[in-house]
């Protein structure tokens, strides 16, 4: 009975980390969005998030037009939307956990439509869910059309401390190596433990400790190898970044659209026009 359980576990973990690799694969495509300077995409994404978050807590309709940004980026950037949606659903649902209290706490009827009454709590809960999809979706899209290394370079060019950027690059590079190692350890232990025997804190301490020792040894080897190649505290990255008219157009074009959608409730305007027409 233990074996199928193990299979499922391992498959889940492998898939999870294969996923990060897939993000990198997506980001190495050559589309017009991928070719943009990473700074332009990073800044526009930040503007997007701040504007989305700045809406009042009962806002639903005005948030809908904002889907245009991730949708367009995914379409041009050739990112499969189903993949992003799956990731969104899997994400730790802290927002949902806290948001679900709103319908319990705020029971004042806010909308009454054709006999259905909706309380303010449900409206704000729906608003939280839409915000969640927009903000997290746009962050995932950013990585899928830009790539982690490029985001790090953009950070450095925008003034983040070099030490921190180098740390990010290192972390990303060795994450895959160590995760593979941990997966092997996990598999080895799972194969030797039956009915949860030997998975307690005692053996855990030695397992994780061993992994840590190996990690520290690895760091030492990496350091020596880097010293041999002339490392003296900073990584030099040779990739020209070009901030041209396309990038300026991207930032200001999108920002203008975001501000328009912030100040004009597009769905209400369209809906009002439609209901007028139908009359």
């Amino acid at each position: 009975m233990d074996v199928p359980v193990l299979d499922i576990d391992m498959a889940a973990i492998d898939r999870h980390f294969f996923d990060i690799g897939y993000m990198d694969t997506l980001s190495s495509q050559q589309t017009p969005v991928h070719q943009l300077d990473p700074r332009a995409k990073l800044l526009t994404t930040l503007v997007f998030i701040v504007i989305v978050v700045s809406f009042g807590k009962y806002e639903i309709s005005a948030l809908i037009p904002f889907f245009i940004y991730p949708v367009v980026l995914c379409a041009i950037g050739n990112v499969p939307p189903a993949y992003l949606l799956k990731k969104l659903v899997l994400v730790s649902p802290f927002a949902i956990l806290l948001g679900i209290f709103n319908p319990l706490l705020d029971r004042d009827i806010m909308i009454r439509l054709a006999g259905i009454e909706v309380s303010g709590g449900w409206v704000s809960f729906a608003s939280i869910l839409i915000r969640f999809v927009l903000t997290v979706g746009v962050a995932l899209t950013l990585i899928a059309v830009t790539g982690f290394n490029a985001v790090c370079m953009a950070l450095e060019k925008l003034g983040a401390p070099k030490v921190f950027v180098v740390q990010l690059l290192f972390l990303h590079r060795y994450m895959f190596v160590l995760v593979d190692e941990a997966a092997r350890i996990f598999r080895a232990r799972a194969l030797r433990s039956f009915g949860g025997e030997g998975t307690g804190i005692k053996s855990y301490g030695s397992l994780a400790g061993q992994l840590l020792l190996r990690t520290l040894d690895r760091a030492q080897r990496i350091y020596l190898a880097m010293s041999c190649r002339g490392f003296e505290g900073q990584i030099r990255i040779m990739r020209p970044l070009r901030f041209g008219p396309r990038e300026i157009g991207f930032i200001f074009g999108w920002s203008a659209i975001f501000f328009l959608m912030r100040f004009y409730n597009l769905p209400v305007l369209i809906g009002r026009a439609m209901t007028e027409l139908m009359r």
Partner: peptide
Amino acid sequence: IPLMGVVGAFIFAAQMINFT
């Protein structure tokens, strides 16, 4: 610098190993 990077990766890896 390399130490921080690799130990950071260790944090990711170690979260895969759990104990009951």
